[in-house]
Design a protein around this nucleic acid. Structure first.
Length: 382
DNA sequence: ATGTCC
């Protein structure tokens, strides 16, 4: 057998109010039992994924697992404070000003984007410059979004956060790049772990790091194109990836920390979004040893994507889902996605946040409520 | 998650 699963530490951070599926816990245990994994943590947004759970962190020694990071390498959350004033303009008007954001960047950002991509190690990557250039600044599908927020409550006095301003939160990743890196890697090596410092580990590592960089630029250019459309400027509060593997020391051992839909607790403030119809929380991580220096990356799914339309269509028409309990506007031209990402499909964010706060993993800085959520254009882009 | 895949 040769693995040490009987010694693996497994910790699940969730209070009794958090929805937790047995299938997600089974995936957490199965992944924790892989060779070389020493510790596993399920965050309160834990839910079942494709083979591996989402909302989880894993520490391994000597080897690491590209398959565990998954296809969206570098996916993460970014937050800006914009110069827009919340009382001046409605979510629906702001959505109209955006138009369609799904195609290539507007001309006035394309050259800027090309220059930014110059810093990428293209020789290591499976996609060429043109392909990366065309995808840059696009949100993508699934749970990705860009959302304008109103700062609803400040729990700690923060001179740099202004309640009269709107904030922009962007959740997106490395688009086709991360998926292609994983696909090519799986073709050659399958799901096995890679020995640290091996040739294949070194190659994956270079690609992984480039995907992290590309994903960061993608969120930046999504934000930039929106700021252009709104004729506003903004300052970045944070930009943090929640899908990655990094060298890490745990319990006195050198190894690797895999975060699979888990926000880092060692890189400053973290934004934890609720569903598009719920609050989002800005938190300050504290300590983190018990949770492998990781926090929830969102509310976490409660319903499988495939179940949503069937569960909701008898009660809600598509149009009903384009507005939330806060009166915020949802832009989503894809009817299937409108149902899959409905607030009802997600866990209660307050239970998720309380689970983290109760065990001392973070303190609250601010609460935000959605004004406008952009998923996909309502009108054709090209 | 994916200019997806049957």
């Amino acid at each position: 057998m040769g693995n040490f699963s009987q010694h693996t530490h497994i910790n699940i951070i969730a209070n009794q109010n958090v929805w937790l599926e047995d299938s997600a816990i089974a995936q957490l245990q199965a992944t924790a039992a892989l060779a070389h994994i020493q510790a596993a943590v399920g965050l309160p947004d834990l839910h079942a994924g494709r083979g591996y759970p989402i909302g989880a962190a894993f520490f391994s020694t000597a080897h690491f697992y590209p398959a565990l990071v998954g296809g969206d390498i570098g996916c993460g959350m970014a937050l800006w404070q914009t110069d827009l004033k919340h009382h001046k303009i409605s979510g629906s008007k702001l959505a109209k000003q955006l138009g369609n954001m799904d195609g290539v960047l507007p001309d006035n950002l394309l050259q800027d984007a090309a220059n930014a991509l110059g810093g990428l190690a293209l020789q290591h990557l499976p996609l060429d410059f043109d392909s990366l250039h065309q995808s840059l600044g696009t949100i993508g599908g699934g749970n990705h979004f860009a959302e304008l927020l109103q700062l609803d409550s400040l729990f700690v006095e923060q001179p740099h956060l202004d309640k009269s301003h709107l904030f922009l939160m962007v959740h997106s990743g490395s688009r086709g790049l991360g998926g292609e890196i994983l696909r090519q890697h799986l073709n050659q090596f399958g799901h096995q772990g890679l020995a640290a410092n091996s040739i294949e580990a070194t190659k994956y590592w270079a690609q992984h790091n480039a995907a992290l960089h590309y994903a960061h630029l993608n969120r930046l250019y999504i934000a930039k194109r929106m700021f252009k459309a709104w004729k506003t400027s903004a300052s970045c509060v944070l930009d943090i990836s929640h899908n990655h593997v990094v060298p890490f020391e745990w319990n006195g051992q050198a190894g690797f920390l895999h975060r699979k839909g888990a926000a880092p607790a060692d890189q400053g403030w973290v934004m934890i979004p609720g569903s598009r119809g719920d609050y989002s929380y800005l938190v300050e991580p504290i300590g983190g040893e018990m949770a492998l220096y990781s926090l929830a990356h969102g509310a976490g799914r409660k319903w499988a994507r495939g179940d949503c339309q069937g569960r909701l269509a008898h009660k809600f028409k598509a149009q009903d889902l384009r507005q939330t309990q806060f009166g915020s506007t949802v832009v989503c031209g894809d009817k299937g996605l409108l149902y899959e990402e409905a607030p009802q499909a997600y866990k209660n964010i307050d239970a998720v946040i309380a689970s983290l706060v109760d065990v001392g993993l973070c303190r609250l800085i601010a609460r935000f409520k959605p004004v406008m959520t952009y998923k996909k254009g309502e009108t054709p882009c090209c």
